[in-house]
Design a protein around this nucleic acid. Structure first.
Lengths: 293, 293
DNA sequence: ACCGCCTGATACCCGGTGAGTATCAGAGCC
DNA sequence: GGCTCTGATACTCACCGGGTATCAGGCGGT
């Protein structure tokens, strides 16, 4: 009874995500029959039913759901082996720091300045991603460290160090009545007629119910706010990307947001450690945060 | 350029650990030539030199060291897929809780009692292991939750909840002069003639330098103390396993030890969550800890 | 220096198994 | 009842992972 192979995991994940053998086979670049056979073999090897084939579509069993989740992290881990080994191979490799496009702009700039002023620091490459993508990129070895935001991002499974605590602001279209307020509360913001809060995808990719538009990139959001179609509550430092016709108003009772630097455990290379140290020192010497300009 | 397969990872790990193709092949149950070929293919696929073969033995390159570490966690993750899926398959599966044999005995007993008194709690199976084995068992899916001890155990990559903070005691042979003291300090304990502190293996399996005997199981230790060959400083609650001819004396300036319950992130099943909740409530209602009986 | 001896690398053959093509078998749906 | 879409089955093929036999270089003992 030998171990699972990554091929089997990839096959299962494809079927579990597509819920359709044919499409999964296309996506994998193989024919459908071998795929059916592979899944069946997998099932009987594990002695567990993974899929309910009830004619007209496929559904995941409970065990299948568990396997889908576990297989995802396992495949990330395997991919990370390749990426990190390759990166360890070429010397003078840059560290890859991933962060949400538009977030923590000033902090990032100060961090890069700090690194640049250190003579022996490894070069750092910036990788910008969209909301919620950091964890995956960190897990599968595409990045070495990430800037993430508590309580928004999924920090499970990473080591972190706090860098910055800040309040949140409401971003409004300039011509909106609320834009003239000095400060706002969550209650005032959460139920504005004709200005619903935009909905972000959850960790699993689905969207919560609600009246607001579905978005998954910062630029979509910026555009929607400028058009007067939505408002949003974001960390104060994200105002860096606000448009001319945006107005930011502090939301006094919104929970604080902590910017953290995160890295995969068990992979604290000297270069990563030194970067984290630089970032932590940045925190110690940080100027007090101002929620108003 | 397809992904790595777990077979390749296992092969590499075997060679990297044995530092010898022949022995690695035996351990894998295959012949040596295919193994050589597989490693060579792996190297040229990654475009990275993993091993220095300099006639008479094999040495890991820097990239090889990275790969060995990463491959370990990846293989654990893959093994976890199988174990957890299988476990999810059979209903009424027990949760597996792993803890160091002999540690946190009373806490564990109270936890089990608390669980037993809850009508709808899943059955819990206890798995006892030796020092430092918990993390691996948790990572590879052999266990669902673990009792671990900060700052001794490697908690990287797990979610944890604190359960108990306690001081440490020195465990001495009954006939030793120090055994009559009411309390001790680290300075008194660390340099006792003819009674060196035993040495535990580090996370990588090697032993620190020093005069004390090398041990890796609790029973070895207990025996050595009873024989008057070593002393050790341990969490007060571990006194549960002390022998008749052991004497425990509080070490007033030793760092506190925190017993935590740990579980893999991303795998917070309802059963695990409920167990963690029970444990946390235990913490809230815990009687104040006494370092002396 | 010779000869074992131990290392890993090479050459070559074989068999299992993963993948392809063709086909079947239910279930919905006009 | 035919059409279509689903996934399962039957069969062949060839790739590649594994085995045996052998080579090649470095070290050590006498």
């Amino acid at each position: 009874m030998h171990d699972l192979e990554t091929r089997e995991l990839r096959y299962f994940v494809a079927v579990a995500e597509e819920l359709h053998f044919g499409r999964a086979a296309v996506r994998l670049g193989i024919a459908q029959p071998p795929l059916s056979r592979a899944i069946r073999q997998l099932e009987q090897r594990l002695g567990v039913l993974l899929l309910d084939r009830d004619r007209r579509g496929v559904a995941l069993t409970d065990a299948g759901k568990v396997m889908l989740r576990e297989a995802g992290v396992a495949l990330d881990a395997v991919a990370a082996v390749g990426r990190r080994t390759r990166r360890a191979g070429d010397s003078k490799r840059p560290l890859v720091l991933v962060t949400k496009a538009g977030a923590s702009h000033t902090l990032l700039r100060r961090l890069l300045d700090a690194i640049a002023s250190e003579p022996d620091a490894a070069p750092v490459e910036i990788l910008l991603c969209e909301v919620g993508e950091q964890a995956g990129l960190l897990r599968d070895g595409s990045a070495d460290v990430a800037l993430m935001h508590r309580p928004f991002d999924d920090l499970a499974g990473f080591d972190t160090e706090d860098l910055l605590v800040e309040g949140q602001v409401a971003l409004l279209p300039a011509e909106h009545p609320l834009a003239s307020h000095e400060r706002l509360t969550l209650a005032e913001v959460s139920d504005v007629p004709n200005l619903p809060i935009a909905r972000w995808p959850r960790l699993d990719g689905s969207y919560p119910e609600g009246p607001g538009p579905e978005v998954h990139t910062q630029s979509q959001l910026a555009q929607l706010v400028a058009l007067g179609r939505t408002l949003l509550v974001i960390p104060a430092s994200s105002r860096a990307w606000q448009w001319p016709d945006h107005v930011a108003v502090p939301v006094v009772d919104a929970p604080n947001v902590t910017t953290v630097i995160a890295w995969p455990p068990n992979s604290r290379s000297p270069a990563v450690a030194s970067l984290v140290r630089s970032a932590a020192e940045l925190h110690d010497t940080a100027p007090p945060h101002r929620t108003l300009p």
